[in-house]
Simulated scan of single mutants.
Amino acid sequence: MEQIRTYLALGDSFTEGLNDPYPGEDEVFRGWADRLAEHIAVRNPGLRYANLAVRGKLVRQIVDDQVPRAVDLAPDLVTLCAGGNDMIRPGADPDALAVVFDDAVRRLRGTGARVVLFTGFDTRGLRSGSRIRGKAATYNMHLRAIADHRGCDVVDLWPLRAFNDPRAWHEDRLHLSPEGHRRMALLVAGVIGVPVEGDWREPWPPLDRADWLTMRREDVHWARTYLVPWIGRRATGRSSGDGRAPKRPTPDLLSIDRECPRH
């Protein structure tokens, strides 16, 4: 494995780490990118890590706000995941988004950084996700082509059935659970060749399936708690990331003792 001195994570809530809070800190999220940085730091003492991701951001916002900062920092490794928030909006054009995304990747690769891209999950396996499946598949094809053209690594999430288990997801049905983030960090580490303990493909324990009434109650809770507020933000042009700064805006030394609680 080549030496990694600086790692930057770019993106939206997926990369920011919702909903994987640090123990005792409900509003401070860890997430797969922080976990990945911890794995990298074991083999690369002195690693500097920044996470510029902000929840709710669209492709254009990520490209305009985060990519220039990343280019200036000239990191060794960049992970970039963007487009999920665009896909869930009516009228999203995956072809146009791919043009914007490709230019961002070109600029990042121009620094000499190793760039890791992510396809989206196959939403067929997720409750309420089938309506965007066609757009997501088209966008994924563009992402794979961009990765091939620009010489990037790809974390291909589309075929991964391990993440179809509901325990991989938070109750909001949009973000990974802590266990989902743990497995994602292991997966990405494998793609970039970082040795780790554990296997993201580890079988899930047997799951007791909920009955019909319980599932309907969960649907009602989800709609009231997550769907209605989301619709409200869309109707008023607001985003969950409005006014938020990145949680780790500067590449700082990663303290494994502090960042990696035992569990």
Rank of each mutant, 00 (worst) to 15 (best):
L117D: 04
G120T: 09
F121T: 04
D122V: 09
T123D: 02
R124G: 01
R124S: 08
R124W: 09
G125M: 11
G125D: 00
L126Y: 00
L126A: 09
R127Q: 14
S128F: 15
G129S: 06
R131V: 12
R131I: 11
I132P: 03
R133N: 05
G134H: 11
G134L: 02
A137P: 01
A137H: 11
T138A: 12
T138V: 15
Y139R: 00
N140R: 03
N140M: 12
M141A: 15
L143D: 03
R144T: 10
A145P: 02
I146E: 06
A147E: 02
A147V: 09
A147Y: 03
D148E: 10
D148P: 07
H149V: 14
H149W: 03
R150H: 14
G151Q: 10
C152Y: 06
C152W: 07
D153W: 09
V155M: 05
D156C: 07
L157Q: 13
L157C: 09
L157P: 07
L160M: 12
L160I: 15
R161K: 15
A162V: 15
N164Y: 14
D165N: 13
P166T: 01
R167A: 11
W169Q: 04
W169A: 07
W169I: 06
H170P: 07
H170K: 00
D172T: 13
R173I: 13
R173V: 14
R173T: 04
L174E: 04
H175C: 04
L176Y: 09
L176F: 12
S177M: 06
E179S: 06
E179F: 03
E179L: 13
G180Q: 05
H181F: 08
H181S: 03
R182H: 15
R182D: 13
R182C: 00
R182K: 10
R183M: 05
A185H: 00
A185E: 00
A185S: 15
L186D: 01
